[in-house]
Design a protein around this nucleic acid. Structure first.
Length: 458
DNA sequence: GCATGATCATGC
DNA sequence: GCATGATCATGC
């Protein structure tokens, strides 16, 4: 029906500014079926019959239609509300083809993206389409996506489809799909059943796209398509940093011409962007890391290889934690499942006793995401235990310690299962969080145990 | 020496 | 004013 992209986008633009109830001429909104927004657009706007096959929606143009929500943040920027879910991964077929013959590439090489604005406390029918455009992957993104596809299919080939995690890859993810976590499928190289998964563009990828397009956000890349044709993004990260390994921070300071301020740790982000060859760029503005949801964490390890301190994460919203019903939808699960951490490992080669003025050395970087097994065992147990404690009411005690009165609690400690614990992180002891039962507790955060971090870095 | 609570410094 | 990274301090 549409013989050129121009015709298609011209038609798509008819929907701009309209709500779904204004677009819907077949009263599809009455039925509460999933994916209904895509169906309304297909049927009422483009006059297509609804299909659910392996072909792209606009087959003659090789274009797949995707209707997807964005939301406004408190600071007025936009974020994608979700990852963009693409076609199902058929574990039995996908390992036997190459990328260009894959189901992903066949169906999703070109997308007609139609963004609608999701608003809280608003009826679905009143959401408005705010932007539509045809999306093709930039050359450098496509190289990363090809490699992601390879990571996914290699895991299937290794008989590990059941261990797939969104954090394994950079832009293209394998996200769970199915009525619940019990909808399992067989895989070709293992008897273990694996969760149903679909290809998806990560939420962080979509958010970056939205901010570039709608907020006009400009980001900086440290790679290029030429470089990505020769090396994977992981190799390029290693290549950029490895020439600085073994140097002291004071040598790095001279070499990179970035002063070290003893009272501030802000020189480390400056070192990082300089080592990546994009001096002056804020870490949040590095395109590859924003799209892939890679977060930097600097670690100082002692001469024995173990960090002196555990690693802290975001503050805990206990009331939200208590309300969470599904582990896979919890903040704890999602934050570790989709993200990668890039550890910047700094090392003391001598003990503090041997040399109080000891130097810090830049040892290495390590890109890491939490293995699904740890996530679904140790971390899930902490989540369950904490929920139980919250339901029972945290046991908060005030105990004298010298001239101070300190607050004690019964939240999971570092000996709970060796991976993580919950501990205070606040401005001071008066900086409290109000719990549902009316108790106040010093603000707490989630920590990875120092010994577990040492194990990761080994 | 480690575990756990407390808090500083910075940047937005 | 607050979130976050980083680190101190005390008691067992």
């Amino acid at each position: 029906m549409y013989s050129t992209e121009e015709e298609l986008i011209f038609k798509a633009n008819d929907a701009k500014g309209k709500t779904f109830s204004e677009i819907d001429i077949h009263n599809r909104l009455l039925k509460n079926t999933k994916g209904q927004f895509g169906h309304i657009i297909e049927e009422s706007l483009f006059g297509y019959d609804i299909n659910s096959n392996a072909k792209p929606d606009f087959e003659e143009l090789d274009i797949e239609l995707k209707v997807t929500p964005i939301k406004i943040n408190k600071n007025k920027t936009f974020s994608s509300k979700e990852r963009l879910v693409l076609n199902m991964i058929n574990y039995m077929n996908e390992p036997y083809v190459d990328f260009l013959n894959s189901s992903f590439w066949y169906k999703n090489k070109k997308l007609l993206l139609m963004f609608y604005l999701w608003l809280p406390d608003t009826q679905r029918k009143d959401f408005r389409i705010i932007d539509s455009f045809i999306y093709t992957y930039p050359e450098e993104d496509l190289e990363i996506i090809k490699n992601d596809w390879k990571i996914i299919t290699n895991k299937i080939k290794a008989g590990k489809a059941h261990e797939l995690s969104e954090g394994d890859t950079f832009y293209l993810g394998a996200c769970t799909k199915g009525a619940n976590s019990k909808s399992l499928r067989e895989q070709p190289f293992s008897k273990t059943l694996a969760k149903k998964r679909a290809y998806s563009l990560k939420q962080s990828y979509m958010t970056t796209l939205v901010r570039q397009r709608i907020n006009g956000n400009e980001m900086t890349k440290f790679t290029s398509s030429d470089k990505l044709k020769k090396n994977t993004i992981e190799e390029l990260i290693e290549l950029n940093f490895s020439s600085y390994y073994g140097k002291t921070l004071s040598n790095l300071s001279k070499e990179l011409n970035i002063p070290i301020n003893k009272n501030s740790k802000s020189y480390i982000p400056q070192f990082i962007s300089a080592m990546l060859g994009i001096r002056g760029t804020k870490l949040t503005q590095i395109e590859e890391f924003a799209k892939a949801d890679i977060k930097f964490k600097s670690v100082r390890i002692e001469a024995n290889g173990i960090p002196k301190e555990s690693m802290s994460f975001k503050n805990i919203d206990f009331n939200k934690w208590q309300d969470e019903e599904q582990w896979e939808k919890s903040t704890l699960y999602t934050s570790f499942e989709k993200s990668k951490l890039l550890f910047i490992v700094l090392e003391y080669k001598e003990s503090k006793e041997a040399n109080p003025d000891r130097q810090l050395y830049f040892k290495k970087v390590k890109l890491w995401n939490m293995p699904l097994e740890i996530l679904n065992n140790e971390l899930q147990n902490i989540w369950i235990e904490t929920k139980k404690i919250l339901d029972d009411g945290i046991d908060i005690q005030y105990v004298k310690r010298g001239c101070l009165v300190v607050e004690k609690n019964n939240l999971p400690k570092s000996n709970f299962n060796g991976v993580a614990h919950i501990r205070p992180k606040a401005r001071n002891a008066q900086d409290k969080y109000l719990l549902k039962d009316g108790q106040k507790i010093t603000k707490q955060c989630f920590w990875l145990n120092s010994k577990y971090v040492a194990e990761i870095l080994k």
